[in-house]
Design a binder for these strands. Structure first.
Length: 552
DNA sequence: GACAGACGCGCC
DNA sequence: AAAGGGCGCGTCTGTC
C-alpha cells in the first residue's frame, strides 16, 4: 500500500457472524470474529480504511448502531471501475464474481437490481448475493491493488477508487439523515397550485378547469394528458405536429396553446410530486431517497426513489430547515467549463477560469467576439457537441481563443466516432460501443447512413463524457473533503443533499458561517487533489436559508 | 396482470 | 439560442 493508513478487511459470513483482520497481518493474532460489526470497528485503529464487499450492504447497519468510519475500500465499486478501465464492462462485478475469476471458478452473474419501494431503506441487491469469505475478500483486494497499479495513471485510479468509496459513505449518511421536508407546506402549495382535490376520484380543480379550457378551444372533449389525443385534435384544426413537446407547441397560433401548456406544467407536478408522492416518500419530516454514487456511466450519482434529483423549483418551498437550524445551499459556479480548463490544460482557458468572477463574462471580455450569453452557448455547444445553429459560429470564435480546450473535446468526440474508449481525468472509462465489429466488417468505403449517425451520436457521448465525468470526479473529492472537515470540526452539520454541482448542508444556525467556509475550502482542495496544481478555481455561490426555495 | 418501450418533462 | 450530453419516473400503449 502506498499510503500509511492501516487497512482492515471486514466480512459477514451468512450465519450472522462478522470476521475482521488487519491486512498487514491477515492470519495473525488480531483476527477477530463477532456478531456485532461495530465491535470490529472499535478493535481497529481510528482512521482505518475498511475493506468490505459493499458499503451499501454494511455501512447502514453500522450507522444504525451509531458507528461511523472515516475511510473504506468498496470492493464491488472498485471492481466496476477496474473492469471498465480494462474494457471489460459488462462482466459481473460482485465480490463473489471477482473471487471466482481469481480462482478460475464459474463466475456467478450479478443479482438483478431492484427498484426502491417507498419507505424501504436500502435496496441495492435483492436477493443478497452469497457471502464472500474474509480470506477471499483479502485476496480480491490484493488483486485490485495490483490492477490499480497497472492502469494508465495508477495514482489517479487509486484516488478514484478511494474517493468513490468515500462517496458511498457520504451517501449512506445522507440516506440516513434525510432532507428536511415540511409536508404541511407541501400540501398547502399543492392546493395553491392545483386547487382542491375533489372527494373521491378525478383531477384536482385547477387541472380540471384547464382541461375544460383546452376542450373548449378545440370544440370537443380533449384529454390534454394524452399526447395522441392532443396531436389528433390539432390535426383536426389543420395543424400537423410531430410531438406535443412544449417547445413545439408554444409557437403555435391556437387558443388551446395557453391552457394546454399551463395544464402540462401542473399535471407534471400533480403526477410526479403531488399528494401520492408525499404519502409515499415523506415521513417524520424527512424525504429519504436513496443516493447512489457512480450510478451513471459518467460517474454522476443517481437516486433511487422519489425523483430526488428532479425536484421542481416550485416544490423546493417545502424543503425547510428544522427550528433554529439552517440550510447551507452551495452551487459550484460554471463547474463543467472550469473542469474543461483543468483537464485540457489550455493556458488561456485556465487563466480565465482562475479569475474570481463569472467565467462566461470573463470569456466574453477576453478577445471572444460576443457577449456573456454567446460565450455560454459556445462553451456548452463545445461540451455537448452542438450540430447546428448560432452556437456553431460562436464555437469558431471559441476555438480561435482556446484551441487546446476545444481540441480536447474534439479529440474525445473523434475517439468515440472511431469506436475507441475515453476516460475521465481520474480514469473512469466509458462503456464500449454496442457493436464494435460492425465498422470493421463493412466493405471498404461503404458507410450506411445509419452507421454514421450512430458514430456521431457516439462522438457526442464521448465528447460530453470526458467533461461531465471529470466534473463528477471532482465532485467526489469535494464531498470527501467536506465530509472530513465537518467531522473534524466536530460540528452537528449534516450533508443532506447532493445534485451534480450542488450540495445542501443542514446545520445549527451558529455553524452556518463555518459550513460556508468549509465548502469553499473543500472546492478548491478538491480541484488541487483531482487535477494537480493549476490556476483554475472552483468557487461556489452559497446561500444560508431556512427554505431551499429562497436560495438564489 | 406483468412487462417493455415510447413519450414527455423535471433536474443538472 | 437551439433542440447537443447525463439521468428518473410517471402515464399510456402494445404485447405476451
Amino acid at each position: 500500500m502506498s499510503d500509511r493508513i492501516p487497512r482492515w478487511a471486514l466480512a459477514e459470513d451468512g450465519d450472522g457472524r462478522w470476521h475482521a483482520t488487519p491486512l498487514d497481518d491477515p492470519t495473525g493474532g488480531r483476527r477477530l470474529t463477532t456478531t456485532d460489526p461495530a465491535e470490529a470497528i472499535r478493535a481497529a485503529p481510528t482512521g482505518t480504511r475498511w475493506v468490505w464487499r459493499s458499503t451499501q450492504a454494511v455501512y447502514p447497519r453500522l450507522l444504525a448502531a451509531g458507528t461511523r468510519v472515516e475511510r473504506c475500500h468498496d470492493i464491488e465499486d472498485a471492481e466496476l471501475l477496474l473492469l471498465a478501465h480494462e474494457g471489460r464492462l459488462g462482466e459481473p462485478r460482485s465480490a463473489a464474481a471477482a473471487w471466482a475469476r481469481l480462482t478460475n471458478a464459474p463466475v456467478p452473474p450479478d443479482p438483478p437490481q431492484r427498484a426502491a419501494e417507498p419507505g424501504s431503506q436500502h435496496s441495492l441487491f435483492d436477493p443478497q448475493p452469497a457471502p464472500v469469505p474474509l480470506d477471499a475478500l483479502v485476496a480480491v483486494h490484493a488483486d485490485q491493488v495490483k490492477r490499480q497499479g497497472a492502469t494508465a495513471h495508477p495514482d489517479r485510479m487509486r484516488l478514484l477508487v478511494a474517493s468513490e468509496s468515500a462517496a458511498f459513505l457520504v451517501a449512506a449518511e445522507m440516506n440516513r439523515a434525510g432532507l428536511p421536508w415540511r409536508a404541511d407546506v407541501h400540501r398547502a402549495l399543492l392546493t395553491e397550485l392545483l386547487g382542491e382535490r375533489y372527494a373521491g376520484r378525478g383531477q384536482p380543480r385547477r387541472l380540471a378547469e384547464l382541461a375544460d379550457e383546452v376542450s373548449a378551444a378545440f370544440g370537443r372533449r380533449v384529454r390534454p394528458e394524452l399526447a395522441a389525443d392532443v396531436i389528433k385534435a390539432f390535426a383536426e384544426a389543420g395543424i400537423k405536429l410531430k410531438s406535443t413537446r412544449r417547445w413545439e407547441i408554444q409557437e403555435l397560433e391556437h387558443p388551446a396553446v395557453e391552457p394546454l401548456i399551463a395544464f402540462k406544467k401542473l399535471y407534471r407536478i400533480y403526477t410526479a410530486h403531488g399528494w401520492s408522492w408525499l404519502a409515499d416518500w415523506v415521513h417524520d419530516g424527512r424525504f429519504r431517497p436513496e443516493f447512489i454514487p457512480g450510478g451513471t456511466y459518467t460517474g454522476r450519482w443517481v437516486t433511487n426513489g422519489g425523483g430526488a434529483l428532479q425536484i421542481p423549483k416550485v416544490i423546493r418551498r417545502a424543503v425547510v430547515a428544522d427550528p433554529g437550524w439552517r440550510l447551507v445551499v452551495a452551487d459550484a459556479d460554471q463547474m463543467e467549463p472550469r473542469v474543461l480548463a483543468a483537464i485540457s490544460r489550455d493556458p488561456a482557458f485556465m487563466e480565465v477560469a482562475g479569475r474570481p468572477e463569472d467565467l462566461y463574462t470573463s470569456i466574453s471580455r477576453q478577445g471572444f467576439s460576443g457577449d456573456r450569453d454567446m460565450a455560454k452557448i459556445a462553451v456548452l455547444g463545445a461540451v455537448y457537441g452542438q450540430t447546428s445553429g448560432d452556437g456553431l459560429k460562436n464555437l469558431a470564435a471559441l476555438r480561435r481563443r482556446f484551441p487546446r480546450a476545444v481540441a480536447y473535446v474534439d479529440d474525445a468526440a473523434k475517439a468515440g466516432e472511431e469506436g475507441r474508449l475515453v476516460r475521465t481525468w481520474l480514469g473512469r472509462t466509458c462503456p464500449p460501443p454496442t457493436d464494435p465489429e460492425d465498422a470493421e466488417e463493412l466493405p471498404d468505403g461503404y458507410v450506411p447512413s445509419y452507421a454514421s449517425t450512430d458514430a456521431r451520436a457516439r462522438g457526442r457521448f464521448t465528447r460530453n463524457f470526458v467533461v461531465q465525468g471529470s466534473a463528477a470526479d471532482w465532485a467526489l473529492l469535494l464531498l470527501a473533503a467536506l465530509r472530513r472537515s465537518l467531522a473534524e470540526a466536530g460540528m452537528r452539520a449534516e450533508l443532506v443533499f447532493f445534485q451534480h454541482d450542488e450540495v445542501i448542508v443542514h446545520c445549527p444556525e451558529e455553524e452556518a458561517p463555518a459550513v460556508v467556509a468549509a465548502i469553499r475550502a473543500a472546492g478548491d482542495l478538491a480541484g488541487r487533489i483531482t487535477f494537480g496544481e493549476t490556476p483554475v478555481r472552483f468557487p461556489f455561490t452559497t446561500a444560508v436559508v431556512e427554505c431551499y426555495a429562497d436560495a438564489k
